[in-house]
Amino acid sequence: MTVYLPIAELSVNIFIILGMGAAVGFLSGMFGVGGGFLITPLLIFYNIPPIVAVATGANQVVASSISGAITHFRRGSLDMKLGTVLLVGGLLGATAGIWLFALLRRVGQLDLVISLLYVVLLGVVGVLMLFESVNALRRAAKNQPVNLRKPGHHNWVHGLPLKMRFKKSKIYLSVIPVVALGFAIGVLTSIMGVGGGFIMVPAMIYLLRIPTNVVVGTSLFQIIFVTAYTTVMQAATNNSVDIVLAFILMVAGVIGAQYGVRVGQRLRGEQLRALLALLVLAVGLRLAVDLVVTPEDFYSIVSAGTGR
């Protein structure tokens, strides 16, 4: 059964899109990630124009983050003040990202930059995660205690000015690194169609030393509003949000996530992270291959009116 995607302007098999959404939803439930960094490359592999894949990916992340966030809001595991400062940075970053996106599209380098960013990001994150989880697995095998850094330990970040007290997180921290982190994630959201949780969460824990119990809820708070803002901005400036594609993906995604969560609870954290690392590396490698392999045709046509 085929369905016509009005913005991507092509007919696709609805079951492939449903399967993609469910698989990524399952993985995101299992690993506790948003899944944007998997859905966007998969859509590109399925010949959806990258410009549509990125904008639609951001829209899909809104849905997948909200169900997770509601749980955190109910439990109160969220620092509203910290989230708002992050959000200010995120909105600024997304605005800059959208502007950059339109510029890259005009000069014909958008697809290349999206692929390159994914290759770099997935490569770095995949390698780091793989090392970390393999080390953890080794320690577990030798029955060594996990060596956590002391939460109160200070680094260079804590020497920065413009400090602010975040009561919920019980930390006294400069707003500069928080806004900067939000900004960087906002840029990634608008150019790559990801929520950015897989970068934001480790950065908040290891760099900003924010207590882990509020990190996930607070990052989801930022992600929801930045991805929502990005979706509207993408629609307004690039007309590239495919609501039909996004809806199929998000329905399959939220259902898949429920099953992923159940499976994830039965597996051990280090094994899960090692598996996710391998998956991330595989997706990055596939994108890298597409950049290097000689294309079938060196030429392509785009129309000035629609940019496609």
Binding site: N59, A63, I66, S67, V232, V241, I243, A246, M250, I255
Partner: peptide, 19 residues
């Protein structure tokens, strides 16, 4: 385009909330 984008967000929010 702006109303369309807002609609896309509302649809996503509803889907996430219902789930």
């Amino acid at each position: 385009p702006v109303s369309y984008g807002i609609l896309a967000v509302v649809l996503a929010a509803l889907t996430g909330w219902i789930a």
